[in-house]
Design a protein around this nucleic acid. Structure first.
Lengths: 332, 332
DNA sequence: CATATTTTTGCAACCGGTTGCAAAAAATTT
DNA sequence: AAATTTTTTGCAACCGGTTGCAAAAATATG
């Protein structure tokens, strides 16, 4: 069907190596030869087969993009940024949806069979073991949104979740709340655990502030709503730090149903700063996670690893910042 | 690095063909041979290289998943369903983000270079020419959410947008609105054009109903909000049919700012029934597009085409239905 | 048991490219 | 113009598999 190298070589009356070289940059070809070959190639509509090429070059330019977050709107943005960023560098994302998949082995094997050059694991809820499984097979891996560790075993790019928890705590204290609560996502997620730890650590410096906590089933609107409905059966705190924006919005909706007003009766601070949080009829005060930088950095790190696979694992952390909107009472 | 066919053959003391056959189903291998080979393979941790295999079998099991909708939350659901559905059938999505890319040629060439078995174009805003470019190169293509045509040139799976427009019109008339408006997405999108046509056609049967129309810049919250703010400078209609849920929510937010109430002062009906529409603090009445069926059907069609590439192009259309929530006044 | 039939196996060519090496051609130097 | 150096080119082996074909082995038939 499609024209091959050999077809072009025949048509141009040259060797296959000559054709190959014209399509490999940095190879030695004379101007005359190049012109002759390019003419024949254009007439045949030839372009080299990447997969055949990969057999000898050992580079496919395929990058496994592995995630289990196909329900949180922020991940649409994540996929947008990743795909664009990879494309700009001539890399191609092979998307793997891990929803309800627990065992890394299948994915590892499959991505190896496709000879991906590297793997980006984009998730804050997958166990670190997942990323390590790739590293153990010698596949360069970056765990984006992964857990920061002082002795990282794989490359991690993301934020310091504990620090973010502290930031939320400070903000609530600053605004004069004296009875606050942590309403986290799934307790098993390392991101939740770390934010919780940071939140509590900071508050322990302010003994006059009472603190409670609970965890929603997952990072979703309905989980947040349900959790707040449950909490409302007992006395509520003055302000809640939610593990995620979409969770916060669920909470907001439940609060409204109860007949309370945000921020007058109850303060709310979210996490992520997804686009929806900025919608004027939501206007959620939240902690912004610099997704764009995180993703750009992840891709840059991946590119660096392609040249230097045994690069020493590093953690790249980006600072978060508070985006003030309408769900916390004004600073006192 | 990784073990190859030859390594396994050596270790097991058999020919490479024998090893190849044990990993190809339907090939003739004796039980003894299979056991011997499998043992050696297991010890070496061997699994076949798909790309090398694809060279001779001419099947990569890669499917290009091409879209330009990386900002509409409904597409997260779309990607979730596509990736899961493809994975279940042993196919692998190679994701292509077409945002701001207008020329199909690059994508076509790139996907050809990776020898994808087929391409799914998931977009209602890309011109039909895009899908045809793949077909012209002999690549099986399904245009999901594409435009229905009585003489389709490529396979289309989606809804009958004109019919959906009629459905919206009927619903508004039924509820006694006599002054209604169409607030579409980008005018260039075929989906917008068709819904508009259907909407107008149905209303022409009800001469007592006044109708106006306008178009937002794109399918986004801010575009909807801006458009409604603009419209509010002149007298408003009683009810609006919006081209998309996220657009509707933008409209809703602007309406609220003006000091009007939905549905008492102004009715609103959206399109898509994305998850956010069901959030209790949004509660948007909308037209449900059966995304799940559309995607399952798209993938099934793709699988069928892999066996029969010259299959006669068909259009598969699924009926929409109205989801009643809180943004239209009750039936009179 | 010899012969015919079926199944299993290995050889060798091929899929579409790349690349080390040496010969050929072109450009420099003497 | 001959000798030397540099650049360009083609040969042939290879990347990791599959597959048609014929030989070998196993099974069935007379």
């Amino acid at each position: 069907m499609a024209a091959t190298l050999k077809d072009v070589a025949n048509k141009a009356g040259v060797s296959t190596s000559a054709v190959s070289r014209t399509f490999t940059d940095g190879a030695s070809v004379s101007v005359k030869m190049r012109r002759k070959v390019e003419k024949a190639a254009a007439e045949l509509g030839y372009s080299p087969n990447f997969l055949a090429r990969s057999l000898t070059t050992r580079r496919t330019k395929l990058i496994g993009l592995v995630s289990n977050n196909f329900h949180n709107p922020i991940f649409l943005e994540v996929f947008d940024l990743f795909t664009r960023s990879l494309q700009e560098r001539g890399l191609r994302p092979l998307l793997v949806n891990l929803s309800k998949e627990i065992d890394p082995e299948n994915s590892v094997q499959m991505l190896r069979q496709y000879s991906v050059d590297g793997v980006i694991v984009a998730s804050s809820t997958l166990p670190p073991m997942f990323s390590k499984a790739f590293r153990d097979k010698g596949i360069p891996v970056v765990n984006t949104f992964g857990r920061y560790s002082s002795s990282p075993e794989v490359h991690v790019v993301g934020i310091d979740n504990a620090e973010a928890g502290k930031m939320a705590a400070r903000e609530l204290v600053d605004r004069g709340y004296t009875n606050v609560a942590f309403l986290g996502g799934p307790e098993a997620a390392t991101s939740t655990q770390d934010r919780f730890k940071g939140f509590m650590a900071e508050l322990s410096k302010h003994p006059h502030v009472t603190v409670s906590h609970s965890f929603a089933e997952d990072y979703s609107f309905q989980a947040g709503r349900a959790e707040m409905q449950r909490l409302a059966q007992s006395p509520l705190a003055q302000a809640y730090f939610c593990g995620d924006d979409v969770l916060s919005i669920g909470v907001m909706s439940a609060v409204k149903d109860i007949g309370l007003n945000v921020p007058q009766d109850l303060g709310l601070i979210g996490f992520n700063d997804m686009e929806i949080a900025s919608w004027e009829n939501i206007a959620l005060t939240t902690i912004h996670q610099p997704i764009k930088q995180i993703i750009t950095s992840s891709v840059e790190l991946m590119v660096a690893m392609l040249d230097e696979p045994d690069r020493y694992p590093e953690a790249r952390l980006f600072p978060c910042r508070i985006i003030e909107r309408d769900t916390l009472r004004p600073r006192s």
